[in-house]
Amino acid sequence: MTLARRLFLLVGVVATAAGFAVVAGVSLGLELTDIFLGLVAALAALQGLRYVQRRRETPMNTTVTGDPEARVAVPIPGSDFDDDLVSAMGRHTHWAARKRVVDRLESRATQALVARDGRAPEEAAALLDTGGWTDDPVAARFLGASVSIPLRQRVRLFLSGQSSLTDRAGRTVAAIERIGTDDDSTGERR
């Protein structure tokens, strides 16, 4: 016990004893004014509020129990790409992640054009540059082609709120899925 604690204990015991003595009718010759009373009350309330405030600053201490009932969690394939998409929209890792997203989609589009559509690698690269690999101007633009999006579609995109990076990446993935399936006419679906 520290010295301060002992002192408080002493004061506490003495004051409580004196209080009970007064209750019992013993006169200790103490006179108390209203001002003194108010002062004591204010001090008590002030100290009290400080203690209450301490609760807000003190985090609860408790054991955290795990989830042994669940099987060990393994990722689903492609979760790394989803993570990249999230951090591409974050503040700090913005550019690096965005580049990873675009680079990965670009190389998959090229591979798909070669493997599924039977194009030569140079031909595939040229198609990506011109945007001729897909009917979806959003996907074409996302992989670097300077295709203009028709005004009507642009308004529709704006209204449907599909202009975020995630939506553009999603449309690009859909466009790559369609490579080599002879189903190139669905550029404006959704």
Binding site: F8, L9, V11, G12, V13, V14, A15, T16, A17, A18, G19, F20, V22, V23, L28, L30, E31, L32, F36, L37, V40, A41, L43, A44, Q47
Partner: peptide, 15 residues
């Protein structure tokens, strides 16, 4: 008497 109350309060605060 209020003296007792105050003394008790001081005692309670200290304790």
């Amino acid at each position: 008497p209020i003296t007792a109350v105050v003394l008790l309060l001081v005692g309670v605060v200290a304790l």
